[in-house]
Structures are given as structure tokens and as C-alpha cells.
Amino acid sequence: MISKLRAFGEYGVALSLLLFAWWYATGPMELPHYLLPTPQSVGATLWKMLVAGELIHHQLFTIKNILLGLLIGTLCGVLLAYFFFKLPRLGHALEGPLVIMQTAPKIALAPLVIIWFGLGLTAKIVLIFSLVFFPVFAGSLAGFRGIDSRMHDLARLLKLRPWQRFYHIDLPAALPGIFVGIKIGAVQALVGAILAEWMSGNQGLGYLMTFASATYKTSILFGAVLLTSLLGILMHALLNTIESTLLAWSIEDDR
């Protein structure tokens, strides 16, 4: 509890310092506003958009895409990793091609994704999926392969059915590895969602950024960037909470 309060305090101090520097640069230092808008004007713009309901709409659109891409990417990543783990021959045969695909810069392929899947939602989800899938797959595979061999002995002794074995032993045992993948994937999902919105469509925080920069509305651009960072921090905090709840068993107690 005390350490949590302290973390909040440290965040607060860091944010205040940043805000002060920002204010100083735009106020006493007199930086032109088209380069750096004042914190007051960004706040006012965000507030106006919030009241108009616009902000929530864009925010929710981005969040929805991220969650959908993250969910599909995680499901596919974990399941394919399990197949690779269960069928080692298939795994070894397909691992090479997969690694090559993994090293391909997915962001550079984004225009291609738009060409293939159109300007709508599908392309956005596909792009996020491709960014989430690989880290989750890699983390899960490492997790499954790292399971203590005596756990497999236990499953054999108890003559567990494949489903029981997956649900009771393999999945929970690999969960720490899976979570490493999900946490990397979540950051990637945010990048993918913003990128996809830059490229097409008229909704979301990424769209807000391109709209604002095209029309020289720097305060909206700043607001969108701030909200995106905030979204990233929230996702990180949420995943950490889920992780510490689900994986309490794997964290050594200080005794």
C-alpha cells in the first residue's frame, strides 16, 4: 500500500515537472504557439471536445480496435504455440518460415495491408493482429516448452484427457511466458491502431492526429498525443494488475 502511494507520488512529481517545463516554454520563454501550444489551450480544446462527445467517440474507436486485435492475436498466438509444442515435428518444420515472417517489418507492410483488406475495419484489425501475434506466440511457445517435465509425468500418471491437461496443467504453467508476450503485444497493438488510423478512415485518436496536423490545429494534435500516451499507461497498469492477480502463485513471497 505504502509503496503504491509512493509510486503515485513519484508519477505526480514527474508529471508536474513536465507540465511546468511545458508551461515555461510556452509562457515566459515565448515559444510560438503553432510549434508548441500552451497547456491551457490544449486543456481547453480537450475539454471542449469532451463536452461535445467527440473525444469519447474517437477514444472508444481506438480502444475497441486495440482490444479486438489484442484478443484475436492472443488467442491465435497461444493456440498456434500449443500446436507447435504438442507436435514438435510440425513445430521444427514451420519455425524457420515463421521466424522470417517475424523479422519482416510489419509496419512497413501497413500500406500493403490497406491495399489487401481495404479502408475499413478489417485492415486495422489485421495490422494490429500481425503486431500482437508474434510476441504472444513467441512468449507462449517459450512458456509451453519450459514446463517442468515432471508436470508431464503427473499428467500421464493421472491419465488426463487432452483438454484437462491443457486447462489444468499446460496453460497455467505457461501463463508467465504468455503474459510476457501479451505485455509486449499490447504496446505493439497501440502503435498498430494509431498507424492504421493515420492511413485511412475518419475515426480514432490516430485520425485526430492527422486531421489536426493537416489543419495546423496543434492543440488538438497535442491533446491526441497526450490521450494516446495516457491510454498506453492505462493498458500497462491494467495488464500489470491482471498479471499480479493471475500469477500470484509464481511470485516468491518475501519471507
Partner: peptide, 16 residues
């Protein structure tokens, strides 16, 4: 179905 019970050198309990 399970004719034997087995005790390992380390307990091999499911930690979760």
C-alpha cells in the same frame, strides 16, 4: 483407471 499413486522426489504440486 489409475492403479498407482506416485510420489516424486520433489512434491511436484501444481503451484497455482
Amino acid at each position: 483407471k489409475r492403479p498407482v499413486g506416485f510420489v516424486f522426489q520433489d512434491a511436484v504440486l501444481l503451484p497455482w
